[in-house]
């Protein structure tokens, strides 16, 4: 059963990599790499079960957390082309109240 699940995940990984090679736009490739990251988390967990070594869960937790970072970095770069811009709204100036004015 676990071996069948591993095989299924590997097939999915190969298909996703084909899209990563072919994808005509950048966003197809980013999507493929994102999906690839999730499949990696699952493959590492399942391989850990298969080999009877549950220490691999730590690596899977790590990937689940930081797969996010490279996706955000790529998207931000392609749009803003700089590290320096923040993804925040500029602070609104609060409307003046009546006190202090004549």
């Amino acid at each position: 059963m676990i071996a069948a699940a591993t095989l299924a995940l590997f097939v999915a990984v190969v298909l996703v990599l084909i899209r990563a090679f072919r994808g005509p736009s950048l966003y197809d490739r980013v999507l493929a790499v994102n999906v690839f990251g999730t499949k990696t988390v699952l493959i590492i967990s399942v391989l850990g079960f298969l080999m009877g070594r549950p220490e691999f869960m730590d690596i899977a937790i790590l990937y689940a957390l930081i797969n996010f970072v490279s996706i955000i970095a790529i998207l931000k770069f392609f749009r803003y082309r700089s590290f320096q811009v923040g993804l925040t709204r500029a602070p609104k100036v609060p409307p003046r109240t009546g006190e202090g004015e004549a």
Partner: peptide, 28 residues
């Protein structure tokens, strides 16, 4: 850009391979 992303994928596959040959700290 595509090369940078595929390098990320390359690193993920390397980590999977290190897990498969039981080198856990290196995979980490």
């Amino acid at each position: 850009f595509a090369i940078v992303m595929l390098t990320g994928a390359y690193s993920l596959i390397s980590a999977m391979w290190f897990v498969a040959v039981d080198a856990v700290d290196v995979a980490f």
